[in-house]
Design a protein around this nucleic acid. Structure first.
Lengths: 175, 175
DNA sequence: ATAATTTAATTAGCCGGCTAACTATATTAC
DNA sequence: GTAATATAGTTAGCCGGCTAATTAAATTAT
């Protein structure tokens, strides 16, 4: 579930005040679009999460079902799921417990490694996934369908710049 | 702290497969840019959170300090903070406990309403806030400084379209 | 004036992130 | 062959979201 979102976003005047107070020479519009980016994502995600919730899914659980569905024998190790998800094994452990409780996934010991557990998609898991998928694409279409092909291209350029900024910030932090 | 992020994003072929399987006629690029948008935000936020963490702050706590700093007498009610933050009072209650423990905020009973508690910024809270602010703007500059003035304008147009999509989805859900 | 309702804040309990610590098994080094 | 190390998974405990329930006080209705 997604976090809340400021209802009180500073206007240019208030921002200018804060910026002036600390003698930063950052451009006000830069800050405002940073805030706008956060805001837009969070509102979008909140709504997308609401769609998922209607089908008793969360995004992470949905994505796990997708990974399993596409995997050979529809089976993966928790470790592999964690890598694909970009989450820790601890987090995946929790998510899997939930999915097992929902009967969408099962666990069985690996025949080759006694430490490992094979996670498999159940028939119920596949049913839920396949019945949800069309609604997922509908939601994405509603969210992003307003952008033309050209606009999608432009968006991807702008996102690439933000990703560059992110990488730069990451490098600056390492120092 | 921000959630993880898929490391395994489907390529066009895999997406086309999933889409075809459920007979959706959504455009593949639409889905990919939706995923790209999520990915870009999450990586950005993860890094921004890391900056905040360096100063023993989280975004929510930082924003609360800002709201208090700008408030008359640097005081607000939990209820007002919840509204500005766009979070529930329960969440604010938790955040305030943490801020009180850090000595950045104090509580005192409202003189006019015995149910209410006035939250005030302490000297320490103000010190932390003002010493962090320049680093905050530096981080935002690093993240978004790569976008020109024109690009920021374009971004805001595209975000507006996503916000429209979000609103449409919200309306569709109500029905 | 009192009863009913609304409101402010907190608490309990769930979720999904995280790190750190632990157990059990595999692997590597010697 | 055994000791040291690395790896798979889980658990405990923290954080910040949430909803629902609770308490106390204020307000409104009658």
């Amino acid at each position: 579930m997604e976090k809340g979102n400021f209802k009180d976003r500073p206007n240019a005047t208030r921002l200018a005040l804060s910026i002036g107070k600390v003698n930063s020479d950052i451009d006000i519009d830069t800050v405002q679009q940073f805030l706008n980016f956060q805001y837009s994502y969070r509102e979008m995600q909140r709504q997308y999460d609401a769609v998922l919730a209607k089908y008793h899914l969360t995004e992470s659980r949905f994505v796990i079902l997708m990974f399993l569905y596409e995997a050979p024998h529809q089976q993966l190790l928790p470790l592999q799921l964690a890598e694909k998800l970009g989450a820790t094994r601890a987090t995946v452990s929790k998510l899997l417990r939930g999915l097992v409780d929902q009967g969408r996934v099962n666990k069985q010991p690996s025949p080759t490694d006694k430490r490992a557990t094979l996670i498999g998609l159940t028939a119920e898991g596949e049913r839920v996934l396949l019945s949800f998928l069309p609604h997922n694409f509908d939601a994405v279409q509603t969210l992003f369908g307003g952008l033309s092909s050209n606009e999608l291209t432009t968006l991807s350029h702008l996102l690439a710049k933000i990703q560059n900024g992110t990488q730069t910030l990451e490098q600056e932090m390492e120092k």
